[in-house]
Design a protein around this nucleic acid. Structure first.
Lengths: 197, 197, 197, 197
DNA sequence: TATGAATGAGGTTTCATTCAT
DNA sequence: TATGAATGAAACCTCATTCAT
């Protein structure tokens, strides 16, 4: 009975349930059953239902951020860094289709109501991309004509949309291909091409 | 008493209310009050609460599609067509911040439940982009190395994400700028550059 | 458009609808549609929904009573009168299965709420049976040991229950047979048998 | 707080409330208040409002059947068995006027919707009577000219109608008398009288 | 008389949350 | 810590009835 990390089990169960039914159509009791705990137990670990979603999000983004930092630690070329970033994001998403749905879909829905919540991890996530772009501009590898934050947002939107498409079950081509194509699209638009023109 | 288009008024009210509180936190009675009709009247025009959301979506996408077709009728150059498409999308979104929120946020939330719904308008919307890309490839203006449907999806994701950012109230730069930058990013990645390399 | 007897059409429609769905599960609009009139028209002829049921009942019982009186006018023998009464009741029921259901089932349900209503026709109906029994007793043909009103009630209960069984669709034997058997049962218990014992 | 049998209390409360207002005019909240539980608690024990009625019926019929079997265990004479059956039915009814109303009135109303329900207890109840008649016929005590199932139905209809009359508040004579008279009526019609004729 | 769009009161039911054990 | 029976607030939706035409 004494599970090592009940909080973890509840979060995992929540991801599974939220992904299948959507946050507002999921019942706390479903999450409890999936986690193998009593309904009341959930409230020992989370303030309320919405808090579960927030924690799922914070935990997931934090974990992905950790992986990003780990993967990027030795990569210095901005072009390579952006490609790596996209690959890690896709790999994370590929690991858990359910998590992808929760992050891409449920999160947006709740975000309005999370203005007071600690959304820093997501800001950091976007900021990470923006920083790569910025560094690329400083190194003269990326065109200085783009706003780094806007480019980051657009970049995230593109790969996230593909992740959603994939998560929704219409896997038209391999994940890797889509990832690479997207990165290429962006990079070829981003990189400075002194020789051309 | 006899309002000309009660259905229209309910839809407009719904967009306003859903945008402010989110679909699941909106009450049908709020929509009714905002529309100036009785609660029951809503059910003369819509099957149920979710149907309002579906109709908002279908109506909006249809209207935007109409505008796209109108705007694109005389544009032949693929590069120009894609730029026009993005501009019209942004203009439509700019017209109604509430509508933007509902389409970008609420819709995704419900999309799981819309699998059975007539999502053709959305499919057409994406298809429209894909077709532009495809034609561009056929005319040799766009790189043949991208899958048109994936490019369309990524393109949509990028401009939609920017629209979301804007709708969420963090209007960092002018809409037009963001639009143009995004289009540029994509186009420069997409267009063939025979002279370079 | 000008139907001769709209009230009649509404009553007939009500019988059909009430029989199929039950009074409380029938919608006034269903009755209106079945009658081929607008919803509001019903309220030109009836005070409210319950009034339709009351009128159906009063009209039906009155009509059956009329037939009973017509059939009994020339019958003088009490035994024969009771048998005739049962036969006419069954024939009436046989004519309209829907009417049978409404009278046997729906009416009981509402009767509590009809205490203030003019239920005289039903009282007269039972009274008619009681009177036959009473006359039989006065003529020495029926045992004086039974309370005529109780006998009437039991008699009605028996044939009504059979009618219900029949109306519910389990027509085990011919209507006439069941009728005759029931009458026989009662009569042989009722008639004085001077020779026996 | 912890009531021993909350289900029982809800059923009892339901019988009381349904009898007074009728099933369709009773509110679930009334039943809850009468039972001293919260509205939601009802749904821990019953599927929905109609299920309460079904369970009242099944429970009651089962209980009466139990009593019938107990009372009949030592009675062998068919005539006596039928008389006993009637007496037990009346006694059960006499115990709870409310229950009588619910069973005789409300139940019929819903019976259309109960076709899919497990109505076996009622079938068994009627079957019990039919079996007594059949055994009586086999033993030569009852006339072979009647269909046992029809006789059972008529018998039930008669005593049930009297119960209804009584439950409706027009207690014209003692219950026992009515019971005895009814039984006598039937039995004298049913029993074979070798000496007569 | 007839219509039927509009009304709006109110009931059934759900489900997040609590708390006695 | 853990449980899960109980709570009760609140929302969706229905449908009898009205009334302007």
């Amino acid at each position: 009975m004494a599970q090592p990390d009940k909080r973890r089990r509840i979060l995992d169960a929540a991801v599974k349930v939220f992904a299948q039914f959507g946050f507002y159509n999921s019942k706390v009791s479903q999450v409890a059953k999936e986690a193998g705990v009593a309904d009341g137990t959930i409230y020992l670990y989370f303030k309320n239902k919405e808090d579960i979603l927030v924690q799922v999000f914070i935990d997931s983004i934090s974990e992905i951020l950790r992986r990003q930092e780990e993967a990027l630690v030795d990569v210095t070329d901005p072009v390579e860094r952006l490609a790596t970033f996209a690959r890690v994001h896709f790999d994370a998403v590929a690991e858990s289709r359910a998590l992808a749905e929760v992050i891409t879909v449920e999160l947006r829905q709740s975000s309005k109501f999370m203005r007071n919540t600690n959304m820093k991890p997501f800001g950091r996530y976007l900021g990470e991309i923006a920083q790569i772009v910025e560094e690329g501009q400083q190194q003269g590898r990326f065109s200085p004509n783009v706003n780094p934050r806007i480019a980051a947002r657009a970049f995230f939107g593109a790969i996230d949309e593909l992740a959603l498409e994939w998560a929704m079950g219409r896997r038209q081509s391999s994940l890797k291909d889509a990832c690479a194509q997207t990165v290429d699209l962006f990079l070829s638009g981003l990189v400075t091409r002194p020789q051309a023109n």
